[in-house]
Amino acid sequence: MSDRSQLISSGQPFTFDSARDAEFERLIKRYPIRESMIMPALWLAQEQEGWLSTEAIAYVAERVGTYPAKVFELATFYTMYHLKPVGKYHLCVCRTLSCYLREKQEIVDYLAAELGLRPGEVSEDGMFSLEEVECLGHCGTAPVIQVNGEFHEEMNVEKLKTLLAGLD
């Protein structure tokens, strides 16, 4: 893991929109302590903005009623929280064991060349971001990639071409 502690300010104040506000209030009733809402609230914030800015993290802390440093801890510990903006299409290639054995590197190399990105980068037009991630739990249908959370299994270069062609 590389350092994730450099938070980025969006320059904009953050608050939940009304739907997420309601969802927060609905979920909080499910837990006996407010701090259990830190992770769900971070998810809500990320769904809303696509990533977690300094402002969003501070907002979650205030909303839950805990220390910003504590929410900061969680946001940096759990790697699915995006601490910088990602592309319109966020591509995660599984790098672990079974996908590794079934040539995930070809997938990474193809995407890197095609999109002109190294893992961890976002394309200049903001369309794509590429990430290598740890085991995605689809080992029987390796190699696998996730596009905005959607799984694409038994990938190969041919299927990638079709997939990329469908993203605009």
Partner: peptide
């Protein structure tokens, strides 16, 4: 009986 799903966020 109440069942609540708690979603992880990337931590083996």
């Amino acid at each position: 009986l109440d069942v609540t799903v708690h979603r992880g966020a990337g931590a083996y």
